[in-house]
């Protein structure tokens, strides 16, 4: 018997201990976390405690009382009164019932959506107070955790695109993507609604006056993908692309995007509109879908822009 007590208490303590060691540091001031830990303690504590109380009675007490007249297949029945603890607890739960309905979650006043709005408001106020003038380093740190939660499922935790399943974000563009854009044009809203890049039939080489050729496409794609290196590519780029993307490929506002580096604006444009290209579809993270706020989009944009630099 002693052993059972010791083992039960030990198991309970160990259990709570393990839970705590795991989550102790993320409990924080989240009321739900605190109440849940408390709940676990109460469930175990009360069950083990009350169980032991009856074990004690099994050991040290005797059942007595007046037997009823009836019996069924030899089973008799005492006319004992209700156990006091039980009756009192029953009334206790009814008191809780009334409290919960009248004060805890009054049926005429409580709304879970209202509760949600409060939660969001409190978060926003706290964020404003703490990070009103958020620095670039902070944005970068913030962006990293946003990236890991929202983007890593496609781009991988290292942002390398997981063997071509999504864009490799450690590099602005690879040759395949560039070729795809040249051959098919591009219309992903990167620099604004309706501003698109023509397909190969609309791309002329100023130097030759001819539409861009297959060979030129290959060369210029390699040029862009390799970080703008190579004399032949530079020539073609100057002839075909620089009118819109600028001589160095860093783009021009409202004309064409930066195809040399990621910039927060570019990433934010991708997040707002999604993007369809050589690999497939990048989903949009529109602000109104609630998943990323503008600040969060800017943060992840900063993070990605810095990634490629390294």
């Amino acid at each position: 018997m002693k052993n059972i007590v010791i083992v039960s208490v030990l198991v309970s303590l160990v259990l709570i201990g393990i839970i705590y060691s795991y989550v102790g540091d993320i409990i924080g001031d989240d009321m739900v976390n605190i109440l849940s830990m408390l709940a676990a303690v109460l469930i175990l504590g009360i069950s083990v405690g009350v169980g032991l109380k009856y074990v004690n009675q099994m050991k040290n007490d005797r059942a007595t009382g007046t037997l009823a007249d009836e019996n069924w297949d030899g089973i008799g029945e005492y006319k004992n009164d209700l156990p006091v603890g039980w009756a009192v607890s029953f009334i206790g739960t009814i008191v809780f019932f009334i409290w919960y309905l009248l004060a805890g979650y009054p049926t005429w006043a409580y709304s879970q959506i209202g509760e949600y709005n409060e939660e969001v408001k409190a978060y926003n106020a706290k964020f404003e107070a703490k990070h009103a003038n958020i620095s670039d380093e902070e944005l970068n740190a913030m962006g990293e955790s946003i990236f890991l939660v929202n983007c890593a499922p496609c781009h991988g935790v290292t942002a390398d695109g997981m063997n071509g399943k999504a864009a490799n974000l450690t590099q602005r563009l690879d040759a395949v993507a560039v070729k795809h854009a040249i051959i098919n044009g591009s219309n992903n809203g990167l620099v604004g609604e309706g501003l698109m890049m023509p397909d190969r039939n609309g791309l002329f080489n100023m130097n030759t006056g001819m539409p861009i050729s297959d060979e030129e496409i290959d060369v210029v794609a390699e040029y862009v993908a390799n970080g703008f290196t190579g004399a032949k590519g530079a020539e073609i780029f100057a002839g075909v692309c620089s009118a819109c993307h600028g001589m160095d490929g860093t783009g021009m506002p409202y004309v064409a995007p930066n195809i040399r580096n990621f910039t927060p604006d570019l990433v934010q444009a991708v997040l707002q509109n999604g993007k369809k290209g050589a690999i497939g579809q990048m989903p949009s993270f529109k602000t109104e879908d609630l998943r990323l706020t503008d600040t969060q989009q800017r943060a992840v944009g900063t993070y990605i822009s810095n990634l490629a630099d390294q």
Partner: peptide, 14 residues
């Protein structure tokens, strides 16, 4: 519930 917003055909395929 809203997975259509943030996952795509090619991703689901993989």
């Amino acid at each position: 519930m809203r997975v259509g917003n943030y996952r795509t055909t090619d991703w689901h395929e993989n």
